[in-house]
Design a protein around this nucleic acid. Structure first.
Lengths: 187, 187
DNA sequence: TGTACATCAGTGAACGCGCGTTCACTGATGTAC
DNA sequence: TGTACATCAGTGAACGCGCGTTCACTGATGTAC
């Protein structure tokens, strides 16, 4: 039966958060509308009171995942030495926990290939998220303004590639690549 | 009707090659058995004369994609200055053509996330492919033996991350990241 | 504030579709003599 | 080499299943007075 507007907004947020987690764990196509509704404690029938299509949900979920990551990243830089913050973020990003729990991790590493196969609108949201990430990460890089941004882009590419490879490989190969990237000098 | 053993082997190879291309373009789950058979000029009904399950086909397709990439990579190193070969490979890897045509490109960048969500056997094949790739790429890196391998792992991570981000982003963001990685010093 | 009615968030059944897999069948290939 | 038969690669129809989406219905919420 009908719920209050406040309750509905909470449900909406729970659907998006659930979809953001499930999509990062299983993939966009492998996360069904019923899965996302179920994660919010609802049945699938009411889905279209919240979203026009599954694509709309996944766009919202992608944005939510980026917001989460960027908030964490920004918190790490807040009032701290930017060089140290960048080094800490790398260690955190390349951690065993991040490799093993994509559902709460970086959407670039978890959903990049899915988004590449998706709609232009999804790619727009993804690109915007990447740009915001680079903006914060650049603070921790050495050099002038343009140089910092270039280095941030390189750093993000290495981090994303390392996680993608680690998740898709046997434990030995994963360890090799993660260790190699942990030792990389930020330059 | 029945075809000769030689014809059957050719069909088998065409199914695997077609699946290797389609999986890299659309993803493993998004490539149907009928699609792979169709790409080989066959109807879907005969599939199970060639493979036990769809998973078996995708394992073969993944191995074929790695073989292709490693053969290309090795050819680039054959009899040439290893430093120059590594630089050329990077330029080739980060090219517009590679971003736009995943079907003939690196399986790490095209299928990494799919494999991460797949079976352990798929991850074993993937890890082995990564190790072989690192072995060749290491020849073009500076330093001692262990150092070269570490640098190769970092280089591959950056290349893979750059392509994943470029494919999933708007053209502006893609260009930013690709250019940043092209300029990176091999160290 | 209290009442009467309209609204609409959520439910559960139903739809058409594409999927992986199975199977009876066909007829060219492979083999035994 | 030639013949007779067994084999089996490929075909097309069929299966059960899960998917995204639709819809009639329910009853609590929101609103007009």
């Amino acid at each position: 039966m009908r719920v209050s507007r406040k309750e509905m907004e909470k449900n909406h947020a729970r659907i998006v958060q659930g979809a953001a987690r499930l999509a990062r764990e299983r993939g966009i196509e492998q996360t069904s509308v019923a899965d996302a509704m179920g994660a919010a404690g609802l049945k699938h029938g009411g889905f279209y009171r919240h979203f026009g299509t599954k694509d709309d949900l996944m766009d919202a979920a992608l944005n939510a995942a980026f917001e989460q990551m960027i908030a964490e990243l920004a918190a790490g830089f807040d009032g701290k030495d930017p060089r140290k913050a960048a080094a800490d973020y790398r260690a955190h990003y390349l951690s065993k926990a991040h490799v093993e729990h994509p559902g709460f991790g970086c959407p670039v590493a978890a959903l990049g290939i899915d988004v590449a196969r998706g709609s232009e609108s999804l790619k727009g949201s993804f690109g915007a998220g990447v740009q915001k990430t680079l903006g914060t990460l650049a603070e921790g890089m050495p050099g002038g303004k343009a140089e910092r941004r270039t280095r941030a882009a390189r750093e993000l590419a290495m981090l994303v590639g390392a996680i993608v490879i680690a998740r898709a490989s046997d434990p030995d190969t994963a360890r090799t690549v993660l260790n190699a990237c942990r030792q990389s000098v930020i330059s």
